[in-house]
């Protein structure tokens, strides 16, 4: 009975022409527009000074050294001297962008972390993220308002395959009927389907790394979300002085793990070529 009831429902072709297609086309066009607006808004990556890069790479140095420690390619004397000089520099603050801290006596006192809002460099980065976020949010809000206002409660399309009842809340948002077959999709749900589904179309039209897709921005809805796209620019106020001190402890730990990879290499080689009997297990 329900089968015949659902098939007795007919959609006016006008709905197809004036609701279904417009929603899809508007969303595609807005996506493309957003792509180009984002390109316009993106400021060129900020130039860093040598000192800033050095500061960022300093942690990398000790991480490289530490990560090889348990099977290190370099002999003990070399390892120790590199490790010691890094520790020394971390304490002295040689790698800090603004040079070593000046007041030696006040070294132990924790310095208050910089407020990101007072630092113009970081402010700029944040504004950038915010601007992009706005470009994402505003058109989506406008389109959703438009659909809600004009097409509220419209049934826009019938899917060509049956679905279970669980999809009802996903496909028939805005249409509060108990009995309608799940295959009917409401206009608001059609909007959401497009919202998440148009990525493939954008990729086809605009290339792989386009900024038209809005669904991926849901993951980073904070205005600080720009951090991911520009790892070069220091967005957060990182207190490198503190990081370096922590890294120094790690270095000392790693020194305990140190083992030269060539420590017993002569035994390994002699065994490999059968000059001495293999080691007992």
């Amino acid at each position: 009975m329900s089968n015949s009831a659902s098939s007795s429902l007919y959609l006016d072709p006008q709905i197809r022409d004036w609701v279904l297609f417009p929603i899809t086309i508007v969303m595609t066009l807005v996506g493309i527009l957003r792509h180009y607006v984002t390109i316009l808004l993106t400021s060129s990556p900020k130039k860093l000074t040598r000192a800033a890069i050095r500061e960022q790479h300093a942690l990398l140095r000790s991480q490289i050294l530490r990560s090889t420690a348990s099977n290190s390619p370099i002999p003990p004397t070399f390892y120790k001297s590199i490790s010691a000089s890094l520790s020394h520099d971390f304490i002295a603050g040689t790698y800090l962008k603004d040079g070593p801290p000046k007041d030696e006596g006040n070294d132990g006192a924790p310095q208050p972390p910089l407020n990101p809002l007072t630092n113009p460099e970081q402010m700029e980065g944040m504004m950038d993220g915010m601007k992009k976020q706005m470009v994402m949010m505003i058109p989506q809000m406008v389109i959703m308002g438009w659909i809600n206002f004009f097409f509220q409660g419209f049934v826009a399309i019938k899917l060509p395959f049956p679905l279970t009842l669980g999809f009802k809340s996903m496909l028939q948002r805005g249409v509060e009927t108990q009995d309608m077959d799940v295959r009917w999709v409401s206009s608001l749900s059609w909007y959401f389907l497009n919202f998440f589904g148009l990525n493939g179309v954008y990729r086809l039209l605009l290339g792989n790394d386009n900024s038209a897709d809005s669904s991926k921005d849901l993951a980073s809805t904070s205005p600080f979300g720009g951090t991911r796209s520009q790892p070069q620019a220091p967005m957060q106020a990182q207190d490198y002085g503190k990081l370096f001190k922590a890294e120094r402890d790690n270095l000392e730990l790693a020194e305990g793990l140190y083992n030269w990879s060539a420590k017993n290499v002569e035994l390994r080689i002699l065994r490999k070529f059968g000059k001495i009997p293999p080691a007992k297990a």
Binding site: P75, A262, E266, R268, K272
Partner: peptide, 12 residues
């Protein structure tokens, strides 16, 4: 001695 060890390391 260091050279010998490192040469062996290459073979290793």
């Amino acid at each position: 001695p260091l050279a010998l060890k490192t040469f062996l390391r290459v073979i290793d």
